[in-house]
Design a protein around this nucleic acid. Structure first.
Lengths: 338, 338
DNA sequence: ATAATTTAGGAAACCGGTTCCCTTACTGTA
DNA sequence: TACAGTAAGGGAACCGGTTTCCTAAATTAT
């Protein structure tokens, strides 16, 4: 409070009339000492408001009790959920969390990873856009990594059952009456290929003609542009126009719905719009395959902490199931008044 | 890459045939040395893949080049935006960002603050639920703090023009035809009292009767419960039922819209629903007063970094304007099919 | 009463940087 | 030729912890 300088272990030692090593031993429970001294030390600690310097400790022990989390984009609620889960588990284990937002830029991601590796004991990589071999090179005994939402050999990972989620979503829209559901595909990484497979196989099973449309960008605009270019090829009135759009994520879906509105198409009456997305209060209106983002973050962190403690886990790759979340509401459109 | 241990400054010194201090001087540009030696040192650095240990450096210099960010709830897109802005500025200045999610729990928040203070050079506190005097006690020359969205004397802060935003929002719904807009109020901190004032004063000016309703919780359920208890007091058909609901945030608004749907009320035809919220792609459908969350995070970080560098800034409190964002779409309701 | 063992706690090296101060050699000037 | 002045780089203390090893005292066993 009032002191002008932070108390060090030497201050505590002096106040308690013992040596620095004794203070260290007592505070860490490394060695049992006499009750009398222990009490004197704890009293001094409280009185001085002493807190060990994490930096000094890290230097000395070679471990920082901090983990790094690199995500694709914090504005995307999927990654927000991962941060939530990871943060909770990290805190429960007394670990600090260093967060870095790669902002969808692989070069920036790589640099952030290097920085974070120096600061932390291990890294959680969510939505990495780095090539497989780079990721594999990153994973070492010194600073292990765990990937979220991406499976590759030799690197531990946690993922959702994406293919299954795509199957369920496809079946859902068909059961709701769709005959020509299309999939608006995201970037070509593990998640997207799983979803594509799930979509394609289900379409086959149902005897329907699949249509996979690559999004120009995984954002509002990407969804809107996709809809408009689709409409320019096949007019919305034509019988080939999709009657359901399965969107790579909820942000795309929002853009899609907006664009459909501009074409005077109403969701879900004219076109069903569903998406893959996390559990999130803001998404309760959209029907989606619920990716357990928080769970992925939490379990990914658990996996990382286990490997940090040398307890190499039985399974290197963990899979978690998704659920279907029906939108409680659907979007309709009003003319914008400026 | 292949080495089994991380290279230290001694390794570099040995490889370059110089002393450790020389390596340090060259790498930090502290002292100009002969070109020949500098080149030898840089070559050794590259060859060994040397990266200075942040912990050792922090211990030695007494500064960590890291800042801490404590937020109320990462799932709330307002705080997500703050993280985005803070992360960007921190990275641009070569600072690492430690993130902690208080999960709306003051006790947890306080503990997280203590931990983060030890790790970092300064803290950004967004949505703090701590009492004023505790915050003031936290702010010191050792580890300065900057608050986001909360003004109190002696502590630097960045905020949005919340009162003005409330005025604009109130005027907007009235101009759109509302006669009895109500304000669904959040917890009694700075932000809410500003918004309340703005709402109340505008209602006065317009000669309308204000109605401030305290939310039981600032979340989906809180919004829903508020609507239902409102409806149980004054039936939706009665002429006293609000024809516009100004929500504390977008999450509440989502809950409100859902609850209205259950009462067979459509937004915005029966009841206008508007909110305070950040710039966020997922929110483009809701009409809201746009809080510049990313800017708050960015400028708050700038402010913090300035005070860290001793350049105490001219203004301790910074205000940033909001904008009205009209929802491109509005929500209507369909019966849920399970 | 003495030897053996346990207990309590201190001394010092170490982690990997930074920085102050000093030495040595080289340059230029009187 | 002697001297001051400067450039180049090394030595060593220091940051604040942890940990290994050791000593002295206290306890137990014989």
């Amino acid at each position: 409070m009032s002191s002008t300088r932070k108390a060090t272990i030497s201050d505590v030692a002096r106040a308690a009339g013992v040596s620095r090593s004794t203070v260290s031993k007592v505070m860490n429970g490394t060695q049992k000492l006499s009750d009398a001294t222990e009490n004197r030390i704890w009293a001094a600690v409280r009185q001085l408001g002493y807190q060990a310097s994490p930096h000094a400790r890290s230097l000395s022990t070679g471990r920082s009790r901090a983990i790094g989390l690199v995500i694709l984009d914090i504005l995307n609620p999927h990654f927000t959920g991962i941060v939530k889960g990871a943060g909770r588990v990290a805190r429960e284990h007394g670990y600090a969390l260093l967060l870095a937002d790669a902002e969808e830029d692989p070069a920036q991601e790589e640099e952030l990873i290097r920085t974070l590796q120096a600061h932390t004991d291990g890294l959680l990589l969510a939505g990495s856009r780095l090539p497989d071999d780079k990721l594999r090179a990153l994973h070492g005994p010194l600073t292990p990594i765990v990937t979220v939402g991406r499976v590759l050999s030799e690197v531990p990972s946690v993922v959702a059952t994406e293919a299954q989620a795509a199957r369920e979503l496809t079946r859902l829209v068909v059961q709701s009456g769709a005959q020509r559901p299309a999939y608006l595909a995201g970037p070509s990484f593990w998640v997207n290929s799983q979803r594509t497979q799930g979509y394609l196989s289900t379409m086959m099973e149902l005897g329907l003609t699949p249509a996979v449309i690559s999004l120009p960008g995984v954002d509002l605009q990407g969804g809107a542009v996709a809809v408009h270019s689709l409409a320019s090829h096949t007019p919305p009135q034509s019988p080939e126009f999709p009657d359901a759009l399965i969107c790579y994520n909820d942000i795309v879906a929002t853009g899609v719905i907006g664009a459909l509105g501009q074409l005077n198409l109403k969701a879900p009456d004219d076109v069903q719009v569903v998406a893959f997305g996390p559990e999130n209060p803001l998404l309760s209106h959209i029907t989606h395959a619920e990716i357990p983002s928080q769970q992925l973050g939490a379990e990914g962190t658990n996996l990382l902490l286990q490997t940090l403690n040398g307890e190499l886990p039985p399974l290197l790759h963990l899979e978690f199931p998704t659920a279907l979340a029906l939108g409680t509401t659907s979007l309709s459109y009003i003319s914008r008044t400026s």
